[in-house]
């Protein structure tokens, strides 16, 4: 799909996906690109799967992407990485949070949460960055910054200058949470580079 870069974010309602997509789009905008995003609102946010897309490039038409086109797939919940795996482009980076949210369909006995998910992730994603973002967020100061930790890892798969990422975070998060979010971002970036 032409020369646009696409990022696919997925997770569960309430995990802070929309903030992460806002920071990515701000970073792309600050880098001088045209940007489009798409988000899920409404009924789907009530504990269901939530996705957000960001696309940037010299000129972006569609806010939606084709399967097999995302340069980075960032999953805030590990089973959701597998559900969205076919959106990742060949050679793309998968950032997967080592974090499980059990759906009601599992607790009520009508479905099973997959076992050996790490193996499945390895099989699905040749370029996999799989780590516990919540733990890194706690180390940075608050578990609520797990989304920004994942964003840090995601940034490694994109070609935007680090300074624009930091500026985008400054622009997007509230000043009193800025320091912890900058730390969280750095931790995520380090995790993906190691």
């Amino acid at each position: 799909m032409n020369d646009c870069v696409s990022v696919f974010l997925t997770g569960v309602g309430g995990q802070g996906i929309l903030l992460a997509s806002e920071i990515i789009s701000n970073a792309a905008m600050l880098s001088g690109f045209d940007v489009k995003t798409n988000e899920v609102h409404g009924m789907a946010q009530r504990g269901g799967t939530v996705t957000a897309l960001v696309r940037y490039g010299p000129k972006v038409y569609s806010p939606l992407i084709c399967e097999g086109n995302a340069r980075v797939l960032c999953a805030f919940e590990m089973a959701e990485a597998i559900r969205a795996a076919h959106y990742l482009a060949p050679g793309g980076l998968a950032v997967v949070n080592q974090y499980r949210i059990i759906p009601v369909t599992v607790s009520s006995g009508s479905a099973v949460y997959p076992e050996n998910i790490k193996e499945t992730l390895r099989k699905c994603f040749p370029r996999l960055c799989y780590f516990d973002a919540t733990q890194k967020a706690i180390e940075a100061g608050t578990e609520k910054a797990a989304n920004v930790v994942l964003l840090g890892a995601t940034s490694v798969g994109l070609d935007l200058p680090e300074e624009t990422w930091l500026e985008a975070i400054r622009k997007t998060v509230k000043p009193k949470f800025l320091e912890v979010n900058l730390k969280a971002f750095a931790a995520g970036r380090a995790a993906a580079q190691s």
């Binding site: 569960v12 309602g13 009924m43 789907a44 946010q45 009530r46 504990g47 269901g48 799967t49 084709c66 399967e67 097999g68 089973a79 959701e80 597998i82 559900r83 795996a85 076919h86 759906p103 009601v104 369909t105 599992v106 479905a111 099973v112 949460y113 997959p114 499945t120 099989k123 699905c124």
Partner: peptide, 19 residues
């Protein structure tokens, strides 16, 4: 066709629910 990966068919559905 770019289909979901095979393992995706075994995933538990995650429909919206009451909070």
């Amino acid at each position: 066709q770019v289909l979901p990966v095979e393992e995706a068919s075994k995933l538990p559905p995650r429909p919206p629910v009451l909070c």
